[in-house]
Design a protein around this nucleic acid. Structure first.
Lengths: 132, 132
DNA sequence: CTTGATCCTGTAGTAACTACAGAAGATATA
DNA sequence: TATATCTTCTGTAGTTACTACAGGATCAAG
């Protein structure tokens, strides 16, 4: 059983975030030592690591929690996992598209901007762009 | 001079958001009718549209405000505009990369998940992934 | 025994909105 | 004219997912 700092190091989840997950009921309340400090087991750390991975993959915390619950439940309903993942993939793809268009628009704007100009043509363009 | 609902329609900025921008000092306080309702001019709407564009391009509100101020100021300092845009482009590019890796990881996970399975292999994988 | 690291609880702040509640005025229809 | 439905007003609180204190207790090392 390890303290919260070590659990944070091993899981990659910040100390304050671990306590926040506990407050929100995302993870169960951990054991406590006589001195009232939180004590984490290997499986507690495992839970935190799974949460971290889901969050890094961009799942909202609510989905991450659902995934965690499924993974605890034993009778994991594969369909809902797959559905969640696929909805999320679609999401990610449209975000990529959006950002690509954005990148194009921005670099075009920036290219037209000669450093040193007093009246900035980039702002002028910005005022007119319709096709973002 | 138009009411806030019409200004919202013409600018694409939500009514509550317009009032929020006003509270935060992002846009100047508009004129008021005798009945105390806000009245917007064409240039008020123009300001809102510029803000909308900046926000759609992903600039944080603080940058959007700076851009707006520059565009009002007449003596627009082109350099700071260009710098802002370029910092933002770098940002956008790294976000795209991140999302692409993410998309790969997710679709690999999802592909390994046969709908109907009781014990979901995707969750098993999720528990092990290191290379996000 | 003192220093510094770690931990505790509880509260408040962050970004950028969004969503009410409750009241007043405006517009359209019967 | 009465009624009903919109739109707007102010002010406050909620959202997401943390992050940052403040003020105090405890622990480990020298």
């Amino acid at each position: 059983m390890i303290a919260i700092g070590e659990a944070s190091r091993q899981s990659g989840v910040g100390i304050e975030t671990i306590r926040y997950y506990e407050r929100e009921g995302i993870v169960p309340k951990p054991a406590r030592a006589q001195n009232n400090r939180r004590l984490y087991s290997a499986s507690d750390v495992g839970r935190l690591r799974l949460l971290k991975k889901c969050r890094d993959l961009g799942f909202p915390l609510s989905d991450a929690k659902a995934l965690l619950d499924l993974s605890e439940g034993g009778d994991e309903d594969c369909r809902s996992v797959k559905e969640m993942a696929e909805a999320h993939i679609a999401n990610v793809r449209s975000k990529i598209d959006e950002l690509k268009r954005l990148e194009g628009a921005l670099s075009e704007l920036s290219a037209n901007c000669e450093t040193g100009n007093v009246s900035c043509p980039m702002l002028a363009r910005l005022r007119m762009v319709e096709d973002i």
